[in-house]
Each structure stands twice: as structure tokens, then as C-alpha cells.
Design a protein around this nucleic acid. Structure first.
Lengths: 264, 264
DNA sequence: TCAGACTTTTGATCTGAGTCAAAACCCCGT
DNA sequence: ACGGGGTTTTGACTCAGATCAAAAGTCTGA
């Protein structure tokens, strides 16, 4: 299983077609970004912009920043200044209660925007941690606000991104509030693979960038339960699992698990 | 317990100090609203507006609508046109999975804004149901967008409202993903009473507008568990519960339950 | 005022997921 | 190539909350 050349997950190579490229070690402010040439544009930018509007929006992206695996893009309590669009890599965000429990609230991949939580109180309320070496575009929020007063498409886009996050979280609440372990894991896999597919990767094969414990935290389960459920799916021939390599053998079964059919 | 005159929950009388008043039966479009005189203004409007700005923002509120207890303000799938600010009454919003499970995703009270879920796809993705007779201010979203291009404080306010909702949902995910039944219910009560207190009501006494089943749905518990947990709190002398009347006798105990102290 | 439907409480029992423990596995840096 | 730390799997047992059931309470509208 799992030929090494299978395009099963975004890696740096897949997103490298950006002409104005930051050399390693180049400091953030020296980078001239070029959204117009970024192949993630349709993910983080509104569609149907005039060239002039696009030019102006490029100015929103002040610079880029590389984050090493395991380190933080921002942390709870930190002053909020910017939103971040992921160029490469993979993140988790976690909130913590006072007594140290914590909860993964999302996993984010290329083209997705992070930092919306910071707007309301001018400070971030969660940690954003890179699960693999990553690079983000830094978009100072005051510039976003300024420009979105003038470019209607940008204004609309910002509103949609925030609304999308609200709707996503509604879905997670449904999952956490009413699904059983198998349903949660099936929903999680389908969601991941669907987002990867939208980025040009396989519909059936993926590499998990997070541990069983992180999956468990996101799904409100313990890591052992996540592991057992993977094993169960594998026994049932629904997936092949080899550590973090997952191949989905039967998407329909997963869908049936998430939405149990009322049988005749 | 619970003297009838105790100001333990918003009722119509508490919010009636609005000079330009809609008579019963008056059709929605005939109402001239007056945010400037609404005592909920500091909840739904940005602070520090000039009189001129306030005048313009009043134009955002196109009209009002009364919703009878049990009926819908909007429903899943319905076209999105407006946000709604609650003037009086109490709502729940629920999402449903394809197979008919459903999940209460929030309870909303006077001064709170509903409908943000509809922005991303131009259609609502949840149902909003009045739990008591209610009245909302209708704010067509295209007008909000238009005006927030010109009034910076409004733009900022809209962003904050959406961000606040994201942060709130992060908190609910933490609750659903990592808390036990008692912790969930304690957190729920503290949250409700805190919001009511911000509206001038008692810090220790409240009337629940929702059933045990609705509380359970919100908290990811069955109604029996909610009932038992209330009984447990009552036995422990933390609250007095008589149907939907709740008096909190010991707020600190509730806080300790939510955030268990690491004992010495 | 009363009937009937909904809501809430409480008891008894069951079960899915948590907990504890140990072994296997794998990856990484030196 | 190896050692060691983190990760994953699996087993045995426990328990919090679900489920099933029945009775009591209460609200509503005719």
C-alpha cells in the first residue's frame, strides 16, 4: 500500500510555483509578496477582482513568516494584530481552561485563515501551533479593515470567512454533542480528505499530521479510543491504517457511519 | 423562595422605555425605530458614536418583527437577508444532521445578534426558535455592509460581534470536549446568570426559558442527566431549583466545579 | 375548571468510552 | 547503527452517563 509517489498530502513541492520567492533566512519584511501568482489565491482571496483591486489587496499581505514544527504562530493572551493565511504547512489551534485542560478547536491547512479569535478583545484567546514546518502570509488587520472599506469584494470576503468559521464550529458542536466515537472519527476523516481533495490531493489517501491524542482532543475522545476506532475501521475493511498513513477503502461506509440510514 | 417581584429575568416591562413604540398589530415596515432611545443600545451598537453616525445607523434597522413563542425567526435552508438584534424575548438556535439528530448551538437573549451563520452561503444553516414571545430588530445585511464602509465604528463592531461568536463557540467546544456533566451544568448556569446580570438582573436568581431537554442538547447530555445534576446541586446546597426557577446559593462552589482546584 | 399533553424527577440497569498498564513500534539525532 | 523518547496498539477492568420505565408535577387552552 501507499506508494511513496502518491500525492496524498500537500507538501512544500506542491505549493512552490510562486515566482517571488523568499529565500531561506530572508527576513520577513524584505519579502515582496505576489498573491496574483499564488496558487492558493482562490482559497484566501475573493474571486472576480479587477487587476487594480488585486494589486491593492496584495498590499494587505505585509510579509511572510516561517514557523518550525512545534512552535507557536501566536499564543493565548498575545496582542492581536494580524490574520494569517497559511501558505504551506499544517496547524492546530487549542484553547485551555484555567485548570490546564485543553481542547484542540481546529486543524488548519494551506489556504485557510487563522487568528479571527483575536479580533473581539484585541488579544488572542487560543494557541496556534505548527504541526509541520509552515509558512504564513501576515495580514495586519487594520489594513484589512481599511481596504475592505474600499474594495467591496474584500469586505464581503472577510465577512464570509468569519461566518464560515461560525458554521464550521456549529458542525463541531453537533459532532461533540451528539455523535458516538465511530461517527466522530468517520466525520473527521471525511472532512480532512474533502479539504485535501479541494487542494488537489487524493480523495482516498492521506497522511495525518497530528497524533492520536490531538485527534482525540479535537473529537472529545481519549487517544486509546481513537486508536481502537481506527483498528475497528481497519478490521471492517473501511480503511487501511499504518501509523499516520490512512487510505480510505470505502468512503460510502464512512458516510453511512456518520449518517446512519434508517433501515427498511 | 422566589418572591414574585424579584427582578430575576428580562421581561417586557424591563425593556419598555422606548418612546417610539410599535402598537400591537402595527405592521413591521411602519415602525420608525429609535436606537438612540433604546436601552439595549450599548449591547447591540458600538460605543462612542457621534450623533450624526448614530442617526445613520438607525437607518440600518429597517423594521421590527414579533415572534410568538415556539415559532421560527428563520430556518435552515432559508435565504439569508438580515441579521437580527433581539429586543425582547429569548431564542435557541439548533443545527440538525441529515439523520434528524439535532443540537442546540446557542441560547440568545436581549441585545444579542442572530443570523451570522447565513452570511457565508447566503442561506441560513440553522433554525432560530423563540422560547418566549419575542421581538427583534431586522437589520438587512447589505445595508450593514454599505454603512460599515463609511462608519468605521460600525465596521469594527460587526467584526467584533462575529469574532465574539467564534470565541464563544471555542468555549463550548472546550466544554463539550473535556468537561463532565456537573462541570458542564455549572458552567452553563454561571454563563446564563452572568449574561443576565449584565442586563441588570439578579446575580443569583434566574428563570430558565428552556426545557431540561434543550439544556441537555446544548450541553451534550440527556435530559435525565441534566435533571439529576440539578438535584445533586440542590442536595449539596449549591442551588435551589423549583422547576425552571433557579436560585444560586453558592456561586463559588459552581466556579470550583467548573475549574477544579488542584488541592494542596 | 378540567383534561390531556408536556415536562420533570427518580429508580434500576446497561454500556460505550475512560482508565490503567504493558508491550510494540517508530522515528530522530548523535 | 544505535539508544531513547515519544507514539501507538491492545488488553482488562471501571464508571459516568445513557437507556428504559414509571410516577408525579404543571401548564395550557377549550
Amino acid at each position: 500500500m501507499m506508494e511513496p509517489d502518491t500525492k496524498s498530502h500537500p507538501g512544500a513541492e506542491a505549493l512552490a510555483a510562486i515566482p517571488v520567492k523568499a529565500d531561506a533566512g530572508m527576513s520577513a519584511h524584505a519579502i515582496k509578496v505576489a498573491c496574483s501568482n499564488c496558487n492558493l489565491r482562490e482559497l484566501c482571496m475573493p474571486l472576480g477582482l479587477t487587476t487594480e483591486e488585486l494589486d491593492r489587496i496584495e498590499d494587505v499581505v505585509a510579509s511572510r513568516r516561517k514557523i518550525k514544527r512545534g512552535s507557536l504562530l501566536f499564543r493565548n493572551g498575545e496582542k492581536f494584530t494580524s490574520l494569517y493565511a497559511i501558505r504551506t504547512g499544517f496547524f492546530k489551534t487549542c484553547v485551555a481552561s484555567e485548570d490546564g485542560r485543553d481542547q484542540v478547536t481546529s486543524f488548519q491547512m494551506a489556504g485557510e485563515v487563522m487568528g479571527l479569535d483575536g479580533i473581539v478583545n484585541d488579544h488572542h484567546t487560543c494557541d496556534a501551533i505548527a504541526l509541520e514546518d509552515a509558512e504564513v502570509c501576515i495580514m495586519p488587520f487594520d489594513r484589512i479593515e481599511e481596504l475592505s472599506r474600499e474594495v467591496n469584494a474584500l469586505q464581503r470576503h472577510v465577512h464570509k470567512i468569519m461566518s464560515r468559521e461560525i458554521v464550521r464550529e456549529n458542525g463541531v458542536m453537533l459532532l461533540l454533542g451528539s455523535m458516538r466515537a465511530e461517527e466522530r472519527l468517520a466525520a473527521f476523516l471525511l472532512n480532512l480528505v474533502q479539504r485535501l481533495h479541494a487542494r488537489g490531493f487524493s480523495q482516498s489517501e492521506l497522511i495525518l499530521r497530528m497524533t492520536r491524542e490531538e485527534i482525540g482532543s479535537y473529537l472529545g475522545l481519549k487517544l486509546e479510543t481513537v486508536s481502537r476506532t481506527f483498528s475497528k475501521f481497519a478490521e471492517d475493511g473501511i480503511v487501511e491504517v499504518k501509523q499516520r498513513h490512512v487510505r480510505i477503502l470505502n468512503t460510502d461506509s464512512l458516510k453511512d457511519i456518520v449518517n446512519p440510514k434508517v433501515c427498511n
